[in-house]
Design a protein around this nucleic acid. Sequence first.
DNA 1: TTTATATACATAATTTTCTTATGTATATAA
DNA 2: TTATATACATAAGAAAATTATGTATATAAA
Lengths: 107, 107
Amino acid sequence: MLKGTLQTIILKLLEDNSQMYGYEITQKVKEVTAGEFILTEGALYPALHKLEADGMLETFTEVVDSRVRKYYRLTEQGGKEVTDKLNEAQVFIEQLQLLLNLKPAVK
Amino acid sequence: MLKGTLQTIILKLLEDNSQMYGYEITQKVKEVTAGEFILTEGALYPALHKLEADGMLETFTEVVDSRVRKYYRLTEQGGKEVTDKLNEAQVFIEQLQLLLNLKPAVK
DNA sequence: TTTATATACATAATTTTCTTATGTATATAA
DNA sequence: TTATATACATAAGAAAATTATGTATATAAA
């Protein structure tokens, strides 16, 4: 129903943390959701590549302990996109709660 | 991210309304969400057929004004499923709000 | 009167998105 | 030397939704 949820999550994490690499993102998601959301690589990397191709993210690499890390950062366009996506997500959640009656009606 | 959202919405509407036909469901969704969610037939009917095939829904038809209506009702199994699906949705929404920081932290 | 809109069902092609599986490579703990 | 953790990536397949059709009746508008 809500397309681009994963993109929204990635963009939001990068808004809060300014730069992150893929593996770090998977760990952050696991940590924040107490293990409820598991972000698999098969979902993450294609999403990152698409966001980069769309001009929302830019990258640079660093070598730490002989391992390559590919860091992602929001572009200016990406910065604007976060706001829009978050608003969309907010509306979506509210409507879903309405439909599912998960939000008790205010008297 | 959350699979089966549409199914959950359908099951919940049928829990509240005991019997509904397809077109009625599309209108209800539109009405409740003030036009924000548009449930297209291409999404709805396959979902209804699958829920029926899975034993969650049962059907009967009625003719009103020379037009056939196919009504759907929850089966016993469907009744149990609603509860599970709603719990899942609740957890999902909470985790998503955590990740997107849409729920202000309580001080 | 014929065109558009609303009601009511359904399916098929395509696209999008995610899961699962696989592959490479290094570091460390068992 | 085997398992786990770190770190990237892609490919096959499945699931779900969008878009496009198709049939059919009723009614309001042009």
